[in-house]
Amino acid sequence: MSLLAVVFIVTGLFFFTGGTIGILRFPDFYSRLHPAGKLDTMGVLMSMTGMALYTVQDFSLAALFTSLKILLIVVFVFITSPTATHAILDAGVRAGLSPWAAPEKGNTK
C-alpha cells in the first residue's frame, strides 16, 4: 500500500514538474495555459490519490474519513481546474489576444 502511494505521489510530482517546465518554456499565453491547466489537474489527481492511500494504510474510521476528504478535494479540483483554464482562455480570446505563430523562414531576429 505504501509503495503504491509513493508511486502515485511520484507520478504526480512528475506531472507537476512537466507543467512547470511547460509554463516556463512555451512561447505565449495560450500554449502556457495548456500545461498550467492539464498537468496541474493530473498532478493534483495523482499526488492526492497517493496521499489518500497513504493515510488509509493503518486502517481506522478516522483515517478513512480523512482519505475520503482528500478524495473530495480531488473531485472538486478535477471539476473546477479545467473550467478555470477554460474561463481564462475565453477571456484571452475576448480581449483580442492573438495566438503565437512560428516566425517565417528568413525572418529570424
Binding site: 472538486f76 471539476i79 473546477t80 473550467t83 477554460h86 474561463a87 475565453d90 475576448r94
Partner: peptide, 18 residues
C-alpha cells in the same frame, strides 16, 4: 455584457452549493 458560457455556468451551478 458577456455572453453566458455553458461550461462555466454549469460548473458554478454544481460547485456553489458545496
Amino acid at each position: 455584457w458577456v455572453p453566458s458560457d455553458v461550461i462555466i455556468n454549469m460548473t458554478c451551478r454544481l460547485v456553489v452549493p458545496f
